[in-house]
Design a protein around this nucleic acid. Structure first.
Lengths: 195, 195
DNA sequence: ATAAATTACAAACTGTGTGTATCTAGTTTT
DNA sequence: AAAACTAGATACACACAGTTTGTAATTTAT
């Protein structure tokens, strides 16, 4: 009698999906979306393409799931970094949150997935929808707080938040030696909003 | 005796390339890079794939040529808009240049090519290299002037220019009703750099 | 001027990858 | 225990990218 062979459907399902996501994450991170084929992914997961297309509509849907997962991990990393902070002012919170983001983004695979491929594969709309549930959400809250506290000028919240978000994304793509210059410039741009 | 049949090689060559670029520009603009196949492009150009692969290394090289051309057109449009201006201050020049950019970017196809597909297809490096010869170049000059004139704070030129560039790109992707909010926010961010 | 060489392009071929349809094994429900 | 359903493997069809081969036109060399 072998143990663990009689798995419930839910167990099979979740375990298979988990294996697919893990394999896909690694492939997409290493070789990009177009550079990785579904045969490669399922081989790395020890499955066949049948399993993939049973659980995901298509390759893009699998990628979207990876993006979602990666966003969640990113958000966790950022939250963990800014956990033990004692309440700073809203402007300082924005800057420190951005720094935490840049630190969490020092991973080539993460950059490839979230910043290079995701916009083109999922499209702005879909990506913003995902983003709005993670990093962008806290950024919007932060901007909103800063404006309500009259710490920065009164500007349209969503556009400003999107612009800051975009700047952080761009800074995350800078190579290591350029990064300090980007941090400094972003800091100056945010501080310039102070009333 | 039929006229115009005896074309020189240079004429054939340039005319064929022109036809390919025009057809490719339209296809890429309408259906995106992955959404358009090379058979579709050459059919629209009244040629065959043989011609395409004779003049371009691969599909990505054709796309790169389209991007280059589009950047040149964009730069022309912006220059034309800011032609009759009497010398404004460096900060105002930055803001007005950005406005001209946003206006010139009100073309869905242009946005698809330059902002959606180009980063993923060509990669940041290659795209920046092209960009550096067009819009980004003038932006760097503008930032540099503003700093030298002590109109804005002393910050690393390239990172700041890239950040501004990225903000304008993001604003260009906003839909029409959001655009004013983006313009206003960008204006405030730039003005905040003033000394 | 004519032959050789080069260039422009077409047509056919090959490989690879996506998505689908079919089929089997295992699980849950009745 | 049988029927219904789910998970997943195998096989298939199609499309597209890139290459190879072939042909017509132009340029260069003799």
């Amino acid at each position: 009698m072998q143990e663990g062979l009689k798995r419930t459907q839910e167990e099979r399902r979740t375990e298979t999906i988990r294996a697919l996501l893990a394999a896909a994450r690694k492939c997409f991170a290493d070789k990009g979306y177009v550079g990785t084929g579904t045969p490669e992914i399922v081989a790395a997961a020890g499955l066949t393409r049948g399993a993939l297309y049973h659980h995901f509509a298509d390759k893009a849907a699998l990628f979207a799931a990876v993006v979602e997962e990666e966003h969640a991990l990113l958000a966790m990393a950022i939250n963990a970094a800014s956990e033990s902070e004692d309440e700073p002012g809203p402007v300082k919170a924005l800057i420190e949150g951005g720094d935490a983001f840049l630190t969490a983004m020092q991973d080539a695979g993460r950059r490839q997935i979230l910043l290079i491929d995701a916009p083109a594969v999922l499209g702005r709309e879909a990506l913003d929808a995902i983003n709005a549930r993670y990093g962008l959400r806290t950024l919007i809250e932060g901007v909103s707080e800063a404006i309500n506290a009259k710490s920065i000028r009164d500007l349209p919240v969503l556009p400003l938040a999107h612009l800051l978000n975009t700047m952080f994304d761009r800074a995350a793509l800078a190579n290591a030696e350029e990064l300090p210059g980007y941090r400094k410039s972003i800091k100056a741009l945010i501080r310039g909003l102070k009333i």
